[in-house]
């Protein structure tokens, strides 16, 4: 059998976890698929997993699991590994999926392949995983008595297979105090100040070094406001101190997935592009027709962003937008 750690929210499994299930189904060769869920809403979230091919959903019940506790969750995985001897254990390649599986890997001294996009059954397991935030692929052999892997989000499609509901099995993991030292003790809700969240925005306009100064972002702010979008930037901008890091798009910043990404005065380094792969359409504005971003964008305007952005805003106003 194979085990998938399923993250969930508001009583529904996360898409990234369903995608992990879809990839793992490819390598189980018909062996039963089990899931592990913990925390508030776990039973509700487990209800729909049967449709994705999960035969049994294990619900870890422990008051300490009410808030995120990665070591405790890894202990739950460890218990199920002992009890069920799975061939593989997988999770979403989300922040927490990667974290929990790394703890499980450390506890069991097992190899872990993070952020896989494909896997081929066998022992060792052959996997393809991403590097450089998705700019590079690695084919690798995953060894170990239990194969631990996470699945990079948005690289595999979740799919229902029309099976019946999963059997629920509740268990109480045995947790020591030491397993609960790392645990969320407080959650601070941040108001987005009426602004649009960069990660969720349907329109993002970013400026890079080409903006020239913090003030150089004013036209981008105006355009974003007009379309209900968000303003982003490149790392050249954040390390210059022109914008906060929360605005940075890229491998070490925010990953965005808008309908349109307007990237102005940005050269198109692989680490920047790693953050905007999810964009449906990329329009580059650059003075340099040879800039690498031109070879990675759908559309380009060759010109100075200080002239082009205000012209777009004016054109939209003329068309009656905003």
């Amino acid at each position: 059998m194979t085990l998938v750690y399923v993250e969930h929210q508001d009583g529904r499994p996360d898409d990234a976890s369903l995608q992990a299930i879809a990839l793992v189904r490819e390598i189980t060769g018909g062996a039963p698929l089990h899931a592990l869920l913990a925390g508030p809403g776990a039973e509700d979230a487990a209800a729909g997993l049967g449709a994705h091919g999960v035969a049994t959903a294990h619900i870890a019940e422990h008051e300490a699991l009410a808030s995120h506790a990665p070591v405790a969750l890894a202990r739950c995985i460890g218990e199920l590994i002992e009890r069920l001897s799975p061939a593989a254990v997988a999770a979403a390649g989300s922040e927490r999926g990667n974290e929990v599986l790394a703890h499980a890997a450390a506890l069991g001294d097992l190899p872990l392949a993070a952020n896989c996009v494909a896997a081929e059954a066998g022992d060792p397991l052959t996997v393809t995983r991403i590097r450089w935030g998705g700019s590079l692929l690695e084919d690798a052999r995953l060894h170990g008595p239990v194969k631990l892997l996470t699945v990079a989000p948005h690289t595999v499609e979740a799919a229902e297979v029309g099976a019946g509901p999963a059997t629920l099995e509740r268990f109480t993991p045995s947790l020591a105090d030491a397993d609960l030292v790392v645990r969320v003790v407080e959650t601070v809700e941040q108001s987005s100040e009426g602004g649009v969240n960069l990660a969720d925005a349907r329109f993002v306009v970013s400026c890079g070094r080409g903006a020239g100064s913090p003030e150089g972002f004013a036209p981008a702010e105006e355009l974003a406001a007009l379309l209900g979008g968000a303003v982003g930037c490149s790392r050249a901008v954040t390390i210059a101190g022109w914008r906060s890091h929360t605005d940075q798009v890229g491998q070490t910043g925010t990953k965005i997935a808008p309908e349109v990404y307007l990237a102005c005065g940005i050269s198109g380094a692989t680490q920047h592009m790693a953050g905007c792969k999810g964009a449906k359409r990329i329009i580059a504005v650059n003075v340099d027709p040879e800039a690498p971003i031109i070879a990675n964008a759908d559309y380009a305007v060759i010109g100075d962003l200080h002239e082009v952005i205000p012209a777009i805003t004016a054109e939209l106003r003329k068309a009656g937008a905003g």
Binding site: P124, D139, D298, Y299
Partner: peptide, 22 residues
Amino acid sequence: GVEKLRLRLPPGQGKQAEILGH
């Protein structure tokens, strides 16, 4: 434990943008 076989570039590299204008 994770034995690298080879690296390769993801598919879909090097599309050329449609120039909308100057």
